[in-house]
């Protein structure tokens, strides 16, 4: 599935968050949106997944304007895993994932055996098959996000939008979640905080700065020393692992001049 945005403009609380953002995501692409805090990553994604409506410009799914889809139709094309998933009521894991079937259901239709099968398969895909009857609120943060991912999978969409889903997760769970997403072979558009994660998983990066796209391309092309200094105001060394050929970013701590390895997102 193809997602494009054209000159998206968004104004929130009087300030201009997006100033004409155009991006293009092709079928089966794993695309990352990076940029410092407040650059508009989340706003851009929220416009794409319909929580915000842009003041100008438009989002297109497969060439058709998003607004012309009914919420149910767009929810069959695009599923979302966002960062906050705190629920004020106890649901079982199964109940939560079953909600992913909602877009496929008519107003008074009941859940059938197919829905339960899809729920089971989705949970298996995220290795949470044994947790179906557990209460969602008793799970750890990493497990909860995997359940939310399973809910998104139960929607059976071609496209997945990730709005910084790995925030506040330990590194193990960050990698686990991204590994699962990568293995699904879907069209993915994800806001990413951590440049190392972005380098590891994304085919293509869009860089948002003050509400505008300032660079895009494959991670290796975008992520340079100068770029990181200019956008994130941090000195960094880039290093390619000779064994895996992977790109790693080593940050230099601003004050003490020590080398520090890792994402250090916040």
């Amino acid at each position: 599935m193809k997602i494009t945005t054209e000159h998206l403009q968004a104004v929130l609380g009087g300030s201009h968050i997006l100033k004409g953002v155009s991006i293009e995501v092709s079928d089966k692409d794993f695309v990352g949106v990076i940029g410092p805090n407040g650059s508009g990553k989340s706003t851009l994604l929220k416009c794409i997944y319909r929580v915000l409506s842009p003041q100008g410009g438009a989002v297109y799914l497969d060439g058709k304007a998003l607004q012309s889809y009914k919420p149910k139709e767009s929810a069959k094309k695009m599923a979302v895993v966002a960062q906050h998933n705190y629920y004020n009521f106890d649901f079982s894991v199964q109940d939560v994932v079953l909600m992913g079937r909602a877009p496929h259901k008519k107003a008074m239709e009941r859940d059938n055996a197919d829905d339960y099968r899809i729920v089971r398969e989705s949970l298996d895909q995220v290795n949470m098959g044994d947790f179906a009857q557990r209460s969602f609120s008793t799970l750890s943060g990493g497990e909860q996000q995997r359940v939310i991912l399973a809910r998104a999978l139960a929607q059976q969409t071609e496209c997945l939008v990730l709005d910084e889903p790995t925030n506040h997760l330990d590194i193990k769970y960050q990698l686990q979640l991204m590994d699962i997403v990568r293995s699904l072979q879907l069209t993915v558009i994800s806001a990413v905080h951590d440049l190392n994660i972005a380098a590891m998983y994304c085919d293509k990066l869009f860089v948002l700065q003050n509400g505008q796209i300032t660079a895009f391309g494959p991670p290796r092309q975008v992520l340079t020393r100068e770029f990181i200094r200019r956008v994130y105001e941090v000195d960094a060394k880039l290093y390619t692992d000779p064994e895996t050929g992977r790109l790693h970013i080593l940050y230099e701590s601003a004050g003490c001049g020590q080398l520090k390895i890792g994402g250090g997102s916040i």
């Binding site: 929580v51 919420p71 767009s74 929810a75 629920y87 004020n88 649901f91 909600m99 877009p103 259901k105």
Partner: peptide, 22 residues
Amino acid sequence: TQYRSLNLMLLGDEVSITLGTD
């Protein structure tokens, strides 16, 4: 008959939009 929407209400407006219900 509205149990699905009532479930979604507990998840909030944002999440339920992404699950296809306004």
